[in-house]
């Protein structure tokens, strides 16, 4: 069985946020109104965050995309009282919007702050809903949501392979962010396949796990920038 993972090359990444925008379009992520945004309630499954620590409120530093890290040892699933967030056999940390009771314990437990809450019903009825992706359910008020590695794309790819009467291949399944990245900085695939590009990149000496010391074993791995070429 595949173990899906992602490698983000920060030396290629330009911080343009195209991945985040593609993610919003793909996953029907509602934009919250400006007033809600001012209350820090914007939902960004793929957030663009500073890649380096640089003191409080100084802003800047290179930015990097941050999806759900899809931990192999996720701190969020252990605290969910109703199995609304759980690890699938293929290693995806899934979120069951229909069962979530909205206690937000997983949000408090996630060290990467990848979980987002629907403080209001952000689903739009004013025309925007006509552009929703029919493969992804929209979320009602009061539940937690997050990056699912575009899990629906995996299901679609499987179905397509079945219809075409051919075996399912790992490359049939790519999340929207990896597909969109103009700098080709996001690599996606099966980590258990030693020959896949993603698992080769994961073994690169530049590979780092975010907050590695926590032992969450993320399946989203970053390739750090090569040390600055020597200029003065």
């Amino acid at each position: 069985m595949a173990r899906w993972g992602m490698v983000i090359d920060l030396d290629r990444c330009t911080g343009c946020a195209a991945c985040g925008t593609a993610c919003k379009a793909e996953n029907n992520i509602p934009f919250v109104d400006p007033e809600e945004s001012a209350r820090d309630r914007t939902i960004n499954w793929m957030d663009i965050i500073p890649a380096e620590e640089h003191g409080e409120h100084n802003g800047g530093g290179p930015m990097m995309p941050r999806p759900c890290l899809q931990c192999d040892n996720p701190p969020c699933i252990k605290v969910c009282p109703v199995y609304a967030t759980y690890l699938t056999p293929e290693g995806i940390v899934a979120q069951n919007f229909g069962r979530c009771i909205g206690c937000r314990f997983c949000m408090a437990a996630c060290p990467y702050t990848v979980k987002y809450f629907n403080w209001h019903d952000y689903r739009r009825k004013d025309g925007f809903h006509l552009y929703e992706n029919p493969d992804v359910s929209t979320r009602p008020a009061g539940v937690v949501e997050k990056c699912t590695f575009c899990h629906h794309r995996l299901q679609l790819a499987r179905e397509r392979a079945r219809v075409e009467k051919r075996p399912f291949r790992a490359q049939d399944y790519v999340p929207a962010c990896a597909e969109t990245c103009p700098a080709e900085a996001i690599e996606f695939g099966d980590l258990d396949d030693h020959n896949s590009r993603v698992s080769r990149l994961k073994r690169s000496p530049r590979a780092r796990s975010l907050l590695q010391e926590l032992g969450t074993k993320p399946k989203v791995v970053y390739l750090v920038r090569e040390h600055q070429n020597e200029i003065g």
Binding site: G20, T21, F31, A38, T42, N44, I48, G60
Partner: peptide, 24 residues
């Protein structure tokens, strides 16, 4: 475009509004 408004300036958390950048 609302999605653009949501990410005007990720480097300073700028969203839905203008801002002026000033040195600390």
């Amino acid at each position: 475009l609302p999605w653009m408004q949501e990410q005007l300036g990720p480097h300073v958390n700028g969203r839905w509004d203008s801002w002026v950048e000033i040195h600390p």
